[in-house]
Amino acid sequence: MTEDRPSTVGVLLAGGLARRMGGGDKPMKTIGGRTILERVIAQLAPQCDGLILNANGDPARFAVFGLPVVADTVEGFAGPLAGVLTALDWAAEHRPDVEWVLSAATDCPFLPRDLVERLQRARIAEDAQLAVAASGDQTHPVIGLWNVALRSDLRHALVIEDMRKIDRWTARYKLAKVTWPDKPIDPFFNANTVEDVAKAEQLAALDGA
Rank of each mutant, 00 (worst) to 15 (best):
T2E: 11
E3I: 15
E3N: 14
R5H: 13
R5T: 13
R5W: 08
P6N: 08
T8K: 00
T8M: 05
T8C: 11
T8L: 04
V9N: 07
G10E: 11
V11M: 11
L13V: 00
L13E: 04
G15I: 03
A18K: 04
R20D: 12
M21Y: 09
G23Q: 05
G24I: 06
D25A: 11
M28T: 07
M28R: 13
M28I: 03
T30Q: 14
G32L: 04
G32K: 07
G32E: 02
T35V: 04
R39Y: 04
V40P: 04
I41H: 01
I41L: 01
A42T: 13
Q43A: 15
L44Q: 04
A45M: 08
Q47P: 07
D49L: 03
G50T: 08
L51M: 08
N54S: 14
A55K: 02
G57M: 02
D58S: 05
P59E: 09
F65N: 03
P68V: 01
P68F: 04
V70I: 11
T73Y: 09
T73Q: 14
T73K: 10
V74Q: 12
G76R: 02
F77R: 15
F77N: 15
F77W: 12
G79W: 00
G79T: 06
P80C: 12
A82N: 06
A87E: 05
W90G: 08
A92F: 10
E93K: 14
V98D: 08
S103L: 03
D107E: 02
P112G: 02
P112I: 02
P112C: 02
R113Y: 14
D114K: 01
L115I: 07
L115F: 05
L115N: 01
V116L: 10
E117I: 12
R118I: 02
L119C: 03
A122F: 09
R123D: 05
D127E: 15
D127L: 12
L130C: 11
A134C: 09
A134Y: 01
A134T: 03
A134W: 06
S135H: 06
G136I: 03
P141K: 10
P141Y: 11
V142D: 10
G144P: 03
W146L: 12
N147Q: 14
V148D: 00
A149W: 05
D153L: 09
L154G: 04
H156Y: 15
L158Y: 02
I160Q: 14
I160T: 14
I160D: 15
D162A: 06
M163W: 06
M163C: 11
M163N: 09
R164P: 07
K165W: 15
K165F: 13
D167E: 12
W169I: 07
W169D: 02
T170K: 05
L175Y: 12
A176E: 01
K177N: 04
K177V: 10
V178C: 00
T179M: 02
W180V: 00
W180M: 06
D182G: 00
K183Y: 12
K183D: 10
P184M: 05
P187E: 01
F188C: 05
N190P: 04
N190R: 10
N190C: 08
N190Q: 13
N190W: 13
N192I: 08
E195H: 15
E195M: 12
E195Q: 15
D196I: 10
V197F: 01
A198H: 14
E201W: 00
L203N: 03
L203M: 10
L203C: 04
A205M: 06
L206G: 10
D207Y: 11
G208D: 08
G208F: 07
G208M: 08
A209N: 11
A209Q: 13
A209C: 15
A209I: 12
